[in-house]
Design a protein around this nucleic acid. Structure first.
Lengths: 166, 166
DNA sequence: TATTGTTATACTCTATAACTATA
DNA sequence: TATAGTTATAGAGTATAACAATA
């Protein structure tokens, strides 16, 4: 067991407050851009972007749910919305009939293409414009480390699925 | 006008992805802790914490709304919830009868006290445990800079209040 | 019996617009 | 006329639990 201090240092507090503030302001700005440019919520964009990166532009619901921090029913809900808009298709997996495979359609890829440039521009102007290359290096290294730690951390908010205590 | 590159560097991408991942995982974990320890949402915690820091443990609705990124009606909603639980009081301001002043009650301060230790512990274990003192310094500096920039940026999602175009 | 995904449902949160009251 | 805040309302999103189908 590692002992936990009862308080944070002033610098830790500053880092935390700055982090939450950047997180909040950046998320709002990005969500607005995604909504204006493609009518997408952040989650929907993330799902489409993951599909766009996936081999064959397809992925199983469960694999998507593990990446995004969502309940399965929430993912079903979002997948329905995307399917209704024709941005993805849902088909049963040939390998395992229980699984549903989401596939990005041409229309989905087109919406992604509509949205990407503005997304990148927003990130550049809001986040990266004021940071030096060294700052970005540091940020990537430090936050990458933190992300690794958090990902491995037990208190996952979206636990894979509860296991019986027996 | 500053020219905007059409894409991000690989390091910028890594920094961005790490940032969003940390943001998402940390927020979920912190929200769970606040809910379990004090039945508070993150917004409610933030409001109570701001009142706790404010002189006289009191603040006007508008001043709170400017800090938190919320619509006025959303703030009214949250203030009602907090008042119903007896954690704050709402009284008209003596200076300006249009204003409402929120004041933290003893019960509110008590809930804050219940919640703080676990909040700090969560931050320490999830975020700071793996970071060196230098890393925290860098993080505070870099994100502080980004926060300053974002705060000053025109596309505020919660604009103070729309002004007539005339 | 465990796993994948869907459905039904209820709840929280947020924003817009209309409204009241005060400056 | 402008500002502070509330109310009414409607919509998006999320999670839990029960369920059906497959492994």
């Amino acid at each position: 067991m590692t002992e936990t201090p009862a308080s944070l240092t002033p610098t830790q507090l500053r880092a935390y407050f700055a982090f939450t503030e950047v997180s909040s302001l950046l998320k709002h700005a990005v969500e607005k851009q995604l909504r204006d440019a493609g009518g997408l919520s952040y989650v929907q964009f993330e799902l489409l972007a993951r599909l766009g990166d996936a081999p064959g532009a397809r992925a199983r619901m469960t694999d998507l749910a593990d990446g995004v921090v969502y309940s399965r029913s929430g993912l079903t809900y979002q997948a329905q919305l995307l399917e209704q808009r024709g941005l993805v298709t849902r088909t049963p997996s040939p390998d395992d009939e229980r699984s549903t495979v989401l596939t990005l359609t041409d229309a989905g890829r087109s919406v992604l293409a509509d949205v990407f440039p503005g997304h990148i521009e927003a990130l550049h102007q809001l986040l990266f414009a004021t940071l030096s290359a060294d700052d970005v290096d540091d940020l990537a290294r430090i936050l990458g480390q933190a992300a690794d730690h958090l990902r491995a951390s037990p208190p996952r908010s979206a636990a894979p699925r509860r296991r019986k205590a027996s």
